[in-house]
Amino acid sequence: MDDRSGPSRRPPARPRGRFWERRAPYVLVAPAVLIIVGLRLYPLLLGVNFSFTGDGDRNGEQVGLDNYTALFDDPLFQQALRNVGLLVLLLPVAVAIPGLLATFIYLRVPGHRFYRSVYFFPAVLSPVIVGAIFNLVLAFDGPLNRLLGGVGAGPVDWLGDPDVAIFAVVGVYIWSTFGMALVVFLAGFATLDPALLDAARVDGAALRQVIRHVIVPGLSRTIQFVFVTTMIGMLTSMFGLLYIMTSGGPEGSTYLPELYIWTQQGQLNRPALASAASTVLFLIMLVVGLAQIAILRRSGRED
């Protein structure tokens, strides 16, 4: 009796329940999906679509790939892309500096407490202030050149020489941001087993050997994380510093895609060309991002 009455009472409820159970996840993720689609993907597609239209007299007309041809013919944009390549090449330096300094702090060099706070200090300054300070320091008649003159070296036009300026700006950028990476490294060191270090010391390992065989392998995930965040930072947040320090000059040698997009849209009134440049920058970031995800995944598997 029970066997039959139970199921016979349930069936009307069951399909309904299943129906909602099956759909509930979709309903629950709907807000997030709609936000992403409506506020991210849709404008992105509009932007890409816009990059196939013309500027000025040809406003609103479909021009095919003309903007992209113009873009890759523009020596300024080529320079901007070359500078992106240069940033990628300089990435190991930008990671090694905080890594090395964090190592010294971890190994308790004299005054390590003092250095820990001093190194972090620039990270709280806005890029505009940092840029203004270094404009003064690196000016042709500024203190750095006077110092060089004092030791007999000729003055360097830090921000006026096209071969030097990009390195000056990147150097200042690294100086002003490495504090964050340093903190991440110090957090990584906190997870390092001190017994390993003691064992290495007991076995008579030199500092170089300790770093190479104990610290670097122990911190591999931290190092990868710092690589990823530094890369993103370099490619997306140098605008303020560049704008203040060189505005893309001298001779266009310090242009980056972001600054190029801003100039084309805001100063030269070529929004469609700027959209094309944005699309190219997006693709670059997509490739870089996917590569980094792949690296992170591989390292995750190793663990």
Binding site: A24, V27, L28, A30, P31, L34, I35, G38, L39, Y42
Partner: peptide, 21 residues
């Protein structure tokens, strides 16, 4: 109730998108 709040949310979100564009 969950369904209604979800519909309400979705409606709000689409309305938000609409006015943004």
């Amino acid at each position: 109730r969950a369904l209604w709040s979800a519909i309400l949310l979705a409606g709000l979100v689409t309305a938000g998108c609409g006015s943004a564009s």
